[in-house]
């Protein structure tokens, strides 16, 4: 069980309010991702839940029981740190055993759990090595191993993949998702990478300056961003946000259209190709001189050849248009 409720939780460092009072419920078994630009308070929020920081106000409940004043170890949560935080002088086995040893568990139980975790994470061959002798991905797995042996109510991940190279990151992303499938334990995952958020989450919490901008499933956020910030943050490449007359034509302050919802061909907009990015599967064109103030990014599926300076016509899909009012909020 791992239902976590935050009720008016607030954090101040001195006079600086990092997290204004905030409510959030994380259901049992959910994979929740906190995402936002750096300095948005997502790591602080995670540390508040972990108990590594004290709240300045409000209440945290885990499975209905108040946990606000409990020390970190008593909350039944396990955390995987950005730097992995492995103990360098201990072997992998001792690292993974450490929380069990601190809990005073019997030798057989310790061995059973560690062997099981090592098997799940493919670490059996490395149990006698030290962290210094492991690669980044293996260290990451040891850190996860140390978390799962405790059989916690929820896992907390603090940007666990940011120290890995791109290829390994994709692999570990998959492994963590599979782990969640298998354990079905609540997981809270902090990242600044919206791709990680979109691919892994059941529920995404978008944060900015300590405020929750929107909570929802990845596709909800993609389809109906609640405001301009979410619209610009979710999706890659980012949504085209257009002000001015064109927006006025749609009775909005700003209109947004995703690059994948504009097709190259016959359409109302015309412009000059600037930079084009060829990914093979897709081609991105940055089009300017469209009569709009902004450079428009367009995604064309497959390999499409247009040189810089070519004039092309663009057809936005009008039903995929997002409209935002002068307060930045979405107009239904």
């Amino acid at each position: 069980m791992g239902r976590i409720t935050l009720d008016q939780v607030q954090k101040k460092f001195g006079d600086v309010e990092v997290i204004p009072p905030l409510d959030l419920t994380i259901e049992d078994g959910e994979f929740v991702v906190f995402v936002g630009p750096s300095g948005c308070g997502k790591s602080t929020l995670l540390r508040l839940i972990a108990g590594l920081e004290d709240v300045s106000g409000g209440e945290i409940r885990i499975d209905g029981k108040p946990a606000t004043d409990l020390p970190p170890a008593k909350r039944g949560l396990a955390m995987v740190f950005q730097s992995y935080a492995l103990y360098p002088h201990m072997t992998v086995r001792k690292n993974i055993t450490f929380p069990l040893k601190m809990a005073g568990m019997s030798e057989e139980e310790k061995k059973r759990r560690v062997d099981h975790a090592a098997e799940v994470l493919n670490l059996t061959d490395y149990l006698d090595r030290r962290p210094g002798q492991l690669s980044g991905g293996q260290r990451q797995r040891v850190a996860i191993g140390r978390a799962i042996v405790r059989e916690p109510a929820a896992f907390l991940f603090d940007e666990p993949l940011s120290n890995l190279d791109a290829a390994l990151r994709v692999g570990m992303r998959l492994e963590i998702s599979e782990l969640h499938e298998r354990l079905a334990t609540t997981m809270i995952y902090v990242t600044h990478d919206q791709v990680e958020a979109m691919t892994m989450a059941d529920k995404i919490v978008v944060l900015r300056k300590g405020h929750i901008e929107q909570v929802g499933s990845p596709l909800e956020l993609y389809r109906t961003p609640r405001n301009l910030f979410v619209a610009g943050f979710i999706g890659s490449p980012t949504m085209n946000l257009i002000d001015g007359d064109e927006a006025g034509n749609h009775e909005a302050q700003t209109i947004g259209i995703r690059p994948e919802h504009i097709s190259v061909g016959d359409g109302p907009w015309q412009g000059t190709v600037g930079v084009s990015e060829h990914l093979g599967s897709d081609t991105f064109f940055h089009v300017h001189d469209t009569g709009l103030a902004e450079t428009i990014t367009v995604r064309a599926p497959g390999e499409v050849e247009h040189r810089a300076g070519d004039t092309i016509r663009l057809a936005p899909q009008m039903d995929k248009l997002h409209r935002f009012g002068s307060d930045g909020l979405r107009i239904a």
């Binding site: 972990a50 590594l52 020390p71 970190p72 170890a73 949560l77 396990a78 955390m79 740190f81 950005q82 730097s83 935080a85 492995l86 103990y87 360098p88 002088h89 201990m90 450490f98 929380p99 601190m102 809990a103 140390r146 405790r150």
Partner: peptide
């Protein structure tokens, strides 16, 4: 000493003395 190591030990349920004995002292060796 990496402060995350101490925090990890705290999450793992190590008391102040255990953190000193198992984390800080080996680090100082």
């Amino acid at each position: 000493l990496d402060s995350e190591q101490l925090e990890a030990a705290e999450m793992d349920g190590a008391s102040a003395w255990s953190r000193f004995y198992h984390i800080k002292l080996p680090h100082l060796s």
